[in-house]
Design a protein around this nucleic acid. Structure first.
Lengths: 223, 223
DNA sequence: AGCATCGCTGATGTATACATCAATAGACCC
DNA sequence: GGGTCTATTGATGTATACATCAGCGATGCT
C-alpha cells in the first residue's frame, strides 16, 4: 500500500520521538522538516497536527512546535491510567484467552527469558512489549487493546527508564511468569492485580522511578 | 480568543454528530461544507482529519467521508472500557475528594433530582453529565478525567439511547445517590463497583441496551 | 530614562492550482 | 457475449502564493 508523505513523515517523527532520537522539549522546525523530507509545508503541517492529536507534540502559537514534555505530575497520572488499563487487559484475558493465544503468550514469555538470559536490555525491552501486546490481544476487546497500545506509545519516551533501574529486568521477568500463571489458571483478579503492580509506578518502586525521571528531566532541561 | 475556521468547523461538526443532527453512517460532503461555511477545502480537510483522529468520523479512501458508525461489537467494547474508567474515577474520587468537591458533587446530585422530579429527560441527561464530570474532577487525575470525557463524547451519539429505556431515569438517580454515599464514606471499592455497574452495559440491562441499539441501527440503515 | 506606539518579521491560516490515484464505465478484442 | 483493458472522472494529496496575526524590537515622545 502506498502511504502519503504526511503519513510517512508522521511515522518517522513518531518513531524519532518514541525512541529518544528527539528528546522531550526539543524544537521541531517545520522548514527543516520540509527540506529533510523534500516536501512542502502542507504534509509537514498535517503530520504535526496528527502528532499533536496523539499527544506527542505540542505547539505554542507563534512560538513554535516542540516535542511534548510532560510534567512529572502528568506522567504519574498517565502511569496510573496505564496500570488500570493493563490490569483490565489482564482480567479480561484471564477469562477469555484461547488456547492459541495462550501458546502465543507462553512463547512471548520464552523470548523474554532468552533476552534476559542473554542480558540484552534492548532485546528484552522489545520482547517485553510483545508479551504485553499478547495480553492485550487476549483481552478480546480490540478497543481496549488499541487504547492501551496508544497510551503505551505515548509513555514510551519515559518507559525506557524503567528497565534501567537495577535488577528491574529480572524482577520484570519473574512478574511475567506470575502473570502468565494467573492467566493460565483463569484467575482474573490475580492477573489484574499483578499487571497493575507490574506497571512501575506503585509501592517502593515509585520513588526510584521518580528520581529516574527527575534525573532525566534535569538532563533535558540542559538541552 | 479568535478561533480558526478549521476549529469552528470542527466544533460545529462534532456538535452536530454528538447531538444526533448528523446520524452515524451519514455522508459528509466536503464541497457542501465548503459552501455552507464559506471556506476553502483546506480548513474543511483539517477539521475532518481532526474528527477522524477523535474517532467520530471515518474516511473510505476514494469513497467518501462518513459519520463513524461503530458496530455493535465495538460499541460493547467501548462501553466496557467506559465502565472501567468510570469505576477508576470513582475509586480515586472516594479517596481523594476534597470538601469543596464533595459540595459540588452534592449540588450536582440535587440538580439531577430536580430534573428527574420535573420529568425533564433532556435536562436530566445534561445534569447527569455534570454529576459524572464532578466525579472525574474529584479523581485528581487530570489525564484520566480527560480520557473519560473524550470517550464519553465519543459514545454520546449512542448513550442518549440509555435513558430512554423505561424507568432508567429513576434508577439512574437512585444509583447516583448510592455513589455519592460511597464517595462520602470514602469507600473506594464500593464507589468503583457502583460506577462500573452504572454504565449500562452489564447484567440484565445489557440485552435491553443491545436491542435499543439494534433498533437504532436498523433505523440508520434505512437512511 | 522610561514608556508607548509603530512597523517589521516570522509564524500561522487559507485559498487555489496542480498532480496523482483509484474506481467505474465503456469499448474493444477474443 | 463476456472478459479485460483503458480512458475518464472525481476524490485525494501536494505545492505554492497570499492574507493575517502576534511578538518583538526600534524609535520617538514625554
Amino acid at each position: 500500500m502506498k502511504r502519503s508523505n504526511a503519513q510517512r513523515l508522521r511515522d518517522a517523527l513518531e518513531d524519532d520521538i518514541i525512541n529518544g532520537r528527539r528528546a522531550p522539549g526539543e524544537r521541531l522546525e517545520p522548514e527543516a522538516l520540509c527540506r529533510d523530507f523534500e516536501v512542502s509545508r502542507t504534509p509537514v503541517r498535517e503530520a504535526i497536527q496528527q502528532l499533536v492529536a496523539s499527544g506527542l507534540v505540542t505547539v505554542s502559537p507563534k512560538k513554535g512546535t516542540f516535542v511534548a514534555r510532560v510534567g512529572l505530575d502528568q506522567l504519574v497520572e498517565m502511569f496510573e491510567v496505564m496500570a488500570e488499563l493493563e490490569g483490565m487487559c489482564g482480567r479480561l484475558a484471564a477469562r477469555r484467552i484461547t488456547e492459541e493465544e495462550l501458546d502465543a503468550l507462553r512463547e512471548a514469555l520464552m523470548r523474554c527469558e532468552a533476552a534476559a538470559k542473554a542480558g540484552d536490555t534492548d532485546e528484552y525491552y522489545y520482547e517485553n512489549e510483545g508479551f504485553h501486546h499478547a495480553i492485550y490481544a487476549a483481552s478480546h476487546n480490540g478497543f481496549l487493546a488499541e487504547e492501551a497500545r496508544q497510551l503505551k506509545q505515548r509513555l514510551k519516551p519515559y518507559r525506557r527508564l524503567q528497565l534501567q533501574v537495577r535488577k528491574r529486568m529480572g524482577r520484570s521477568l519473574d512478574e511475567h511468569r506470575e502473570i502468565l500463571a494467573a492467566i493460565e489458571h483463569g484467575d482474573a483478579e490475580r492477573a489484574e492485580r499483578l499487571l497493575r503492580a507490574h506497571v512501575v509506578i506503585q509501592g517502593e518502586r515509585f520513588s526510584d522511578f521518580v528520581s529516574s525521571v527527575r534525573r532525566f528531566g534535569a538532563r533535558l532541561d540542559a538541552v
